[in-house]
Design a binder for these strands. Sequence first.
DNA 1: TTAATTTAGGACTGTTCCAGTACTCAATAA
DNA 2: TTATTGAGTACTGGAACAGTCCTAAATTAA
Lengths: 156, 156
Amino acid sequence: MIILSKLADYGVIIATQLATQPERQANAATLAEETRLPRTTVAKLLKALAHGGVVTASRGASGGYRLARPAEAISIAEVVAAIDGAIGVTQCSIHGPDCTRTTFCSTKPHWKRINDAVGTALAAMTLAEMTPANLFAQWLKLPPKPGPTEGQGAAP
Amino acid sequence: MIILSKLADYGVIIATQLATQPERQANAATLAEETRLPRTTVAKLLKALAHGGVVTASRGASGGYRLARPAEAISIAEVVAAIDGAIGVTQCSIHGPDCTRTTFCSTKPHWKRINDAVGTALAAMTLAEMTPANLFAQWLKLPPKPGPTEGQGAAP
DNA sequence: TTAATTTAGGACTGTTCCAGTACTCAATAA
DNA sequence: TTATTGAGTACTGGAACAGTCCTAAATTAA
């Protein structure tokens, strides 16, 4: 089983790409090239990320996107939620009262614990930790380092 | 976003149902009735659970299924894995080398941490803890209790 | 003022995957 | 031998997902 959708995965890659050069304003086409992802898809995802408050957009010529906050202050959970919606383990974790079997289903109350664990795991990692600049630091188990580095990106 | 597929959710419900009366041998039709799930689907799931070593089957007249091990020794992760396959956060968590962008994708190495956290969360909860008998205990934050109780089951 | 650039916000489409069903074969008990 | 029940496989309808396209709005530059 795969937890994240392709698009959510892409979303993290795009956001990470933005995190490598936080000052820069990049447009959809540029980000698509850098991440080797389809242009139209990248454009679509950036809209979703903007909607979710992960990035800010400026329109018009020489417009583009940049992170809405410092990379250290943006969690993977936020990025994923902006694209795939709120995280829930089961159907009833999300639309709880809709489940007609609520009264005699014994498993429901227990999912919350698992739900929280997954949410915590995604919330614990920030975009800053995802950047290549922190790859080596990660290896050494050093604390994450904010600074920007040169370009990178992309996945399956 | 929803993490577990409907079928995996159902699988947990069925396994939990079996856990309420570990000694009993129940067939697919009976379990379907008790859980209010479609017969054919329950039959399909039980096959998958048997394949995954969660339940044991005996064929023939008066055959049926029962848990392969005590409910306290079966984790939710096992049940889910039997139905949805191994847990992975992204595509590359599962078929790693297939990803053509491996060489320049900076996010890949980081998914493992999240992956492990999710796996741990699912592995930490056992079937025994899912049974209605432990609902009240859970409420009181008591340690899980093994014993069987009367029938229950089902969900969305 | 006009033209070019870029995001916003839809609608649309093709494909894939998922849930559910049906059918045949093998094993067991009476 | 026969009825019952699981094993295994193949099939189908529908929903969700990934990806595309088009038009409108905002901004900049000429």
